[in-house]
Design a protein around this nucleic acid. Structure first.
Lengths: 141, 141
DNA sequence: TATACAAATGATAATCGTTCTTATTTGCAT
DNA sequence: ATGCAAATAAGAACGATTATCATTTGTATA
């Protein structure tokens, strides 16, 4: 798990808001949280944080490599704990549920495409949007 | 080329602003334009359009299938003429140049992934970000 | 061709997500 | 305990986009 050390080694003081945010990501059943999500959940847990602080902390955690930021459609950024391994996302347009996947073939072809076009890949984002046909969508937003 | 018919068949009156916007996309050497881009270019061409109209028209054109909207990183939407054929994008982080590509293998694997996870694909977006290693990047933003 | 009316426009206010500012508080080394 | 740099909270500011609404413009009809 994450001790305050994680923060310290990232050059960040281990303050209350930072610990709370980290806690939330580790204990929430929802892997993908927006700044607004984090803010609201902390408030309803009785914590007294400012929205500006949430944004600041999320950005710092991203830069420290603790979180990964995603730009899904809809304008708002979504964060998740950095598991170290890259993966892409498939998002249900009906219930907002997000599943992660990794496909070696796709990754390989991307390298291929980039090389062909004379690019060096720095990053990429693949988002599939669809309908999750499972009987019970557990996550209604 | 696009005649006013295109608008009419989309259920849109062929008004001056709409024709101008369509013209711009057909005659601009830059395929990918943001709302702000369109607005500024029309103004500097002596046209007198409102920014709100540009946004409205772009959205209508997207819904009518004349344009395709992309959400690249950076917060703003970018539009391009709908060529009918799907393609993905690779964006140069240095100069902002956008290249289009289509890879059958990637498309096929996506279907595969979605099926495996119990999804029906509605849409997807694959953006590769990198450095375009060509000697002269022609498009400096 | 004149006209009438719904549809479209332009100016501006409002909204949304996010960042900035600043006075106050807090972690932590002394 | 104490001091001070770093972090915070509140709210202003911001950029992109959308909504409002009075005015204008296509276009179908007389």
């Amino acid at each position: 798990m994450h001790q305050p050390d994680h923060l310290k080694s990232a050059g960040l003081k281990s303050t209350l808001p930072r610990l709370k945010v980290l806690d939330l990501f580790e204990n929430s059943k929802e892997r993908h949280l927006s700044a607004e999500d984090v803010y609201k959940q902390l408030l309803s847990s009785g914590e007294d944080v400012g929205l500006a602080t949430v944004y600041r902390v999320l950005t710092q955690f991203e830069q420290a490599g603790l979180l990964v930021r995603h730009h899904f459609e809809g304008g708002k950024s979504v964060f998740e704990l950095n598991k170290g391994e890259h993966h892409d996302h498939i998002v249900c347009l009906q219930c907002g549920h997000v599943e992660e996947f990794f496909d070696t073939a796709i990754e390989a072809r991307q390298e291929n495409v980039a090389t062909t076009l004379g690019f060096t890949i720095r990053d990429h984002s693949l988002h599939i949007y669809g309908d999750c046909t499972k009987k019970d969508c557990p996550h209604k937003p």
